[in-house]
């Protein structure tokens, strides 16, 4: 059950998308999201969809993996769709009591769902094709200028990479503790909401304790290897910006600008 979580999972591969510099990919994702939010009509959404389809195809990420990642957001999607259907004014199609379904509402709900789906797809694409390490390196490098403002960029990146690294470990740990408490007759599945929340105590307490213990051990291990923050620290894998990255980045930005302009004209 818990093993099905695909959050932040990386599928190693050697496609052109995998080989791109993480900084280029990060900026491209932001550009893509900007494009999505400036899209207005069928044309702009269509362009966004085609762009996404091309990148998915090139990246060799299987469609199944993308769809699987959508499962947790189904609720949000349905909620967004329902709210949008009823909260638009325009040509009414039919009404149920005081709720009126309009043509505009349906259209808006459709676009909203598409927008969320594509946004999640493109961020999943980023984590599927970029190793967590490369991703945090990229973030650190992108946020580098903030160091001048005394923002602890390196520390934030380190926190992020450690957090990503420990997600699978914690899931495994949760599974283990759950089995152990089940062996003592704990019941996590049945009962009222309050009972189920109470049943989580025997799971959460050991989990927190072990997470804190792990953190402590990790800190000691890092200190033993002379870690003292980002200053003067060299890297084994330096990020190399290649011409292909520049081309990709320019394409992404041009794409975002084009969509934004088209969107501004209401297409």
């Amino acid at each position: 059950m818990l093993k099905d979580i695909t959050l932040g999972q990386f599928f190693p591969g050697n496609s052109p998308i995998h080989r791109l510099d993480p900084r280029a990919k990060l900026v491209a994702v932001i550009a893509y999201i900007v494009a999505l939010f400036t899209s207005q009509g069928f044309l702009t959404y269509g362009i966004c969809f085609v762009a996404l389809a091309i990148v998915v195809k090139v990246s060799t990420v299987r469609l199944k993996a993308l769809v699987k990642g959508m499962k947790p957001v189904v609720f949000i999607l349905v909620f967004t769709a329902v709210v949008n259907i009823f909260y638009a004014t325009g040509t009414p199609i039919f009404s149920i009591g005081f709720l009126t379904v309009t043509y505009e509402g349906l259209l808006r709900a459709f676009f909203m769902v598409i927008r969320i789906l594509m946004m999640i797809s493109c961020t999943f694409l980023l984590t599927y094709t970029t190793s967590p390490l490369a991703l945090t390196d990229g973030l650190e490098s992108l946020l580098g200028p903030l160091k001048k403002l005394h923002v602890p960029v390196h520390e934030l990146a380190m926190i992020m990479s450690i957090a990503l690294r420990f997600i699978p470990t914690l899931i495994e740990e949760t599974d283990k503790i759950m089995s152990a408490q089940r062996a003592r007759g704990a019941d996590f599945e049945t009962g009222s909401l309050v009972q189920r929340a109470k049943a989580l105590v025997p799971l959460l307490v050991p989990l927190f304790i072990s997470a804190l213990r792990r953190a402590d051990e990790l800190a000691t291990a890092m200190e033993c290897r002379c870690y003292h923050g980002g200053d003067g620290r060299t890297r084994m894998n330096e990020l190399h910006y290649r011409p292909a990255d520049t081309v990709f980045l320019i394409c992404a930005i041009l794409f975002a600008v084009a969509v934004a302009v088209l969107g501004a004209f209401g297409y």
């Binding site: 283990k176 089995s179 152990a180 003592r184 025997p202 050991p206 072990s210």
Partner: peptide
């Protein structure tokens, strides 16, 4: 009764008494 490897990581109660009583309580 199944005792897992490193079972001490499943302790969670305030006192040892309460922790031992968890199984019989269930």
């Amino acid at each position: 009764g199944l005792v897992f490897q490193y079972p001490e990581y499943q302790l969670f109660e305030e006192t040892v008494y309460k922790d031992i009583a968890f199984g019989p309580g269930n």
